[in-house]
């Protein structure tokens, strides 16, 4: 594993058993052979349509979804973990190091706990502090970083606006001083102004605390503005992965291109140039043969239906999973 990476996955798969009857039992592969490296200190984005496996991938890296194939490694200073095989004290330490910021701050916060108790809970779960004073000290410190004041800590979450609630869930995720944070659609429910505020907060916390983020989102403009590197997922697979600017400037995969052309432009006279993507993502229990994207790809040829493309490196740090990436001219 390269020392620059905090997390590396190799052919990582997550399968869920589906179907009740013994004979019809099959496996739904929500994440399918994913090989990715997440550099330490990066803001790493994952995009893709609903059901593409983004949340499941994030959960696998948090040790919260079963790794059923391949591997995921975490390496930081003198610790090195095989995430599929964590037990006992290692597991406990990893739970401190890897945290989740919830998708929906409204549903995630318990209405009967004060903000102070909500933020403090992870400390108590991992047994990180020895006294109540120590806990209070830590809670105040992180609340301050997340721009919540002391008076806020005594209140209940229903008294807060959407943006404030999101700051509470961020404080809760960061109170145990994690190294790796999964932010799953953390700004999706917020309106633009609050969204900008939370994104700026995540960035400044990254600098102050030396965090590495896995940032899951279906909003490509948000990802373009916040992430250094973006991976595009489709039906549990990585279709393309590249440094943000490079990906947006010269996408190599037809799916990436299709996602980009669907972004509504702020210019009322610009209605998008490329053709729109028809239909929807197939069910992972009924996968297409060959390239997973061929049922919707405007460039599909016979080969695409028969043979599954492998992920190839097309430039430094830029990989693509498409038979035809060399010949297609997708950049505008």
């Amino acid at each position: 594993m390269s020392t620059e990476n905090l997390i590396e996955t190799k052919d990582l798969s997550v399968g869920f058993p589906v179907g009740g009857k013994i004979f019809n039992k099959s496996v739904l592969k929500a994440v399918n052979d994913v090989s990715l490296s997440i550099p330490r200190g990066s803001f790493f984005g994952v995009v893709g349509e609903s059901g593409s496996g983004k949340t499941t991938f994030g959960r696998a890296l948090l040790n919260a979804a079963p790794i059923t194939g391949g591997s995921a490694h975490y390496e930081d200073g003198d610790v090195s973990y095989d995430l599929g095989k964590l037990t006992g004290s290692e597991l406990k330490e990893y739970r401190r190091r890897a945290q989740l910021i919830f998708q929906d701050p409204y549903a995630a916060l318990s209405p009967r706990m004060t903000v102070r108790d909500i933020i403090a809970e992870p400390l108590e779960v991992v047994g990180l502090c020895n006294s109540r004073e120590e806990v209070d000290e830590r809670v105040r410190e992180i609340a301050n970083l997340c721009r919540l004041n002391l008076e806020h800590l005594r209140r209940f979450p229903h008294a807060f606006s959407g943006g404030q609630r999101q700051r509470i869930s961020i404080a809760r995720a960061l109170v145990s001083k994690p190294r790796f944070v999964v932010a799953d659609e953390s700004v999706a429910a917020l309106d633009v102004s609050i969204q900008a505020d939370i994104l700026n907060l995540l960035k400044s916390l990254q600098d102050e605390m030396g965090l590495t983020y896995l940032f899951i989102s279906h909003d490509l403009s948000v990802v373009a503005h916040t992430c250094d590197h973006v991976a595009v997922m489709y039906l549990g697979q990585i279709m393309e992965s590249a440094p943000t600017r490079q990906l947006f400037r010269s996408p190599r995969h037809p799916y990436t291109k299709a996602l980009f052309s669907a972004i509504p432009s702020l210019d009322p006279d610009d209605h998008g140039k490329a053709q729109k993507l028809e239909g929807e993502i197939p069910s992972p229990t009924n996968r297409p043969t060959g390239c997973q994207f061929h049922t919707r790809c405007p460039f599909a040829i016979d080969l695409c239906k028969r043979e599954e493309p492998r992920m190839e490196t097309c430039e430094a740090e830029h990989s693509v999973t498409c038979h035809r990436w060399r010949e297609l001219q997708l950049a505008d």
């Binding site: 606006s161 505020d197 403009s221």
Partner: peptide, 24 residues
């Protein structure tokens, strides 16, 4: 104007995101 400035725009990735200050 504030709402428009807060919007992440694809044609200028270097432009900082500017939230409308304060809470409603």
């Amino acid at each position: 104007q504030g709402l428009i400035d807060a919007l992440p725009q694809l044609d200028d990735l270097d432009k900082p995101l500017m939230p409308v200050p304060g809470d409603i």
